[in-house]
């Protein structure tokens, strides 16, 4: 067992343990999520009647593909005063989310499960299995994993000199290679900019560095609402340097969370690769 998997097992065990052992037996009836990625998996895996509340990002179409499904469900802002009156029997939080809230809920004997980050396709499957198992909808989980696997584009043939893709996000960040975006890029036969430049983890890449690196494809994040964070993405220099098929826009919501929508992002990258001149 890797260190990471071990840590994960401890997190889940702690979540189950604090529930007094009752969770595994009966399916929970009032499930609360305080994290966008748990929202998405709940909407895909739970019965609607099981969902007591989702995080307030759940209905934001910029960040989730399941915004329509979340319409009409109660939303929370991760505040104890919103969540305690719901008397939840299971709460999902993010791995880096409000620690004091988790502490407070566990003291009330409410089981809190920290949904781990998914950085690879296998970790997407693992999270689906985890959530479906806790909800008592294992069959639905197995179907969702099968659908995800079927939706993925075919893995690219090994290439000794793969083309470089610059995954370029808000504020000029490029994600770590060990991320869903990096995994999707590798799956369709790219090497990502972070790896090509030897960057350690997610890092900010200036416009000048990006232009000098001259990647084969620029995969920009796409979102609607205005912010200065998007200034580097909208800079005319990028339009001049990455013309036509050398730019593709990939909506954030497809790979913000470890969910089957990552397959759609992988297809966008795969199609973009085919359009690049051979």
């Amino acid at each position: 067992m890797t260190l990471r998997a071990a840590a994960f097992a401890i997190v889940v065990a702690a979540g189950l343990w604090s529930g007094g052992g009752g969770v595994a037996a009966a399916a929970p009836e009032r499930v609360v999520s305080t994290h966008l990625c748990a929202d998405v998996l709940l909407l895909l895996l739970a019965d609607r009647s099981q969902i007591a509340s989702l995080s307030y990002f759940a209905t934001d179409g910029n960040f989730t593909t399941e915004a329509d499904a979340a319409q009409g469900l109660p939303l929370n802002h991760g505040l104890a005063e919103e969540i305690l009156p719901l008397a939840p029997d299971l709460v999902f939080a993010g791995a880096f989310a409000a620690r004091p809230l988790s502490f407070l809920l566990r003291r009330q004997n409410i089981p809190v499960v920290d949904l781990p980050l998914a950085d690879s396709f296998e970790e997407i499957r693992r999270n689906i299995r985890l959530v479906a198992g806790l909800l008592g909808t294992e069959a639905r989980g197995a179907r969702l994993i099968a659908a995800f696997d079927a939706a993925l584009p075919p893995a690219a043939a090994p290439d000794p000199t793969p083309p470089v893709v610059a995954l370029y996000w808000s504020k000029g960040y490029t994600p770590a290679s060990a991320s869903l975006a990096g995994a999707a890029a590798r799956h369709v036969g790219f090497v990502d900019l972070g790896q090509a430049l030897g960057l350690d983890g997610a890092a900010r890449v200036s416009l000048e560095t990006l232009l000098l690196a001259d990647p084969a494809l620029l995969a920009k994040a796409g979102r609607d609402a205005a912010a200065l964070a998007d200034l580097p993405l909208a800079h005319p220099a990028l339009r001049g340097a990455f013309k036509g098929p050398r730019t593709v826009t990939i909506p954030d919501k497809l790979w913000v969370c470890g969910a089957p929508s990552v397959a759609d992002a992988a297809w966008l990258m795969s199609d973009a690769r085919k359009r690049l001149a051979p």
């Binding site: 416009l207 000098l212 005319p236 220099a237 340097a241």
Partner: peptide, 12 residues
Amino acid sequence: DATLRIIVIEVR
């Protein structure tokens, strides 16, 4: 080259 021109003219 073109990249250099873009950096100097469009960015700087």
